[in-house]
Amino acid sequence: TYKKPLVSIIDGVVMGGGLGISLHGSHRVVTENAFASMPEMAIGYFTDVGVAHAAQRMVGTRGQASPALAKYWAITGYRMYAADMLWSGLATHAVQDAETILDAIVENGADTALKQHSYVPDGEAPLAGVIDEIESTFNHATWPEIQEALKSADKEFAQDTAKYLAAACPTSVVASNELFESHAQEEDIVKALQREESLGRYIRSRGDFAEGVRAVLVDKTKDAAFNPEETAAVDIDAIHAALKV
């Protein structure tokens, strides 16, 4: 809610919390070296830092906001590069070099500098090629409905989605989907973040979070044994209770 311009220069890898604190700003500037994703599903956590609130309200060069698109890249951990970030709305500008734009912003101000140095990447954004499949599958309110829709989706798209989700914690996937639905109904970012904080306490209290951190960040074996192993067995009532603040 900060009133002054807040410029994020996204250069290189930006994931999870780093992405979350960046996308709430007025100017989200990506370089040619940038790629972004939300990898929390693999460590037994969820799409936090207000991503579920901001992402589904962003309008990029596509010209419209899309809760389904935001839910897709956030829950699957899909890696976005400059073209996808501009098209989806995650980024507002693309530039070639971080240091050059930083110097220009200091000298001339953000708007003038970005007008001089920003550009539109060549070619179609990869997400634009699968947006119809994304909209027809991830536009549903519950994870079982999304899973059912994926069964009749384009075969290649469904296979890619399954590959992205292969290492995901089932509880994290369901919790993130429910968080997106909760944020969709809440315009007040403060109240939305309070629900997120409550959900975070619940998720961190479970063994999946420690197991995911061990497997991905500590031992780096990527062999997390999540419990439950299937989304159908996730305690949805506990997740709903955590989201009622």
Rank of each mutant, 00 (worst) to 15 (best):
Y72K: 12
D132K: 15
E107R: 00
N177T: 10
M58E: 09
I10Q: 13
L127K: 01
Q147E: 14
K222S: 11
E186G: 06
V59P: 09
S172P: 14
H240I: 01
Q96S: 06
A168E: 06
A241F: 00
A36V: 06
G17L: 02
Y72W: 15
A110C: 04
V49W: 14
V106Y: 04
Q159D: 12
A241E: 05
K155M: 03
G109M: 03
G50F: 08
W87H: 09
D122W: 02
T221W: 09
L102C: 08
I9C: 12
V216I: 15
P126F: 06
D219Y: 14
A149W: 13
T221Q: 06
L179I: 05
V14D: 08
N139Q: 04
T76N: 07
K244F: 01
A70Q: 01
D11F: 13
R206G: 08
A141T: 10
R79A: 13
A232I: 13
T171Q: 11
D122R: 07
Y81G: 14
T221I: 02
V14W: 09
V216K: 12
L23M: 14
T171Y: 05
T171A: 05
A167T: 12
G18T: 14
T142C: 06
W73F: 15
C169P: 15
I236F: 01
E187Q: 12
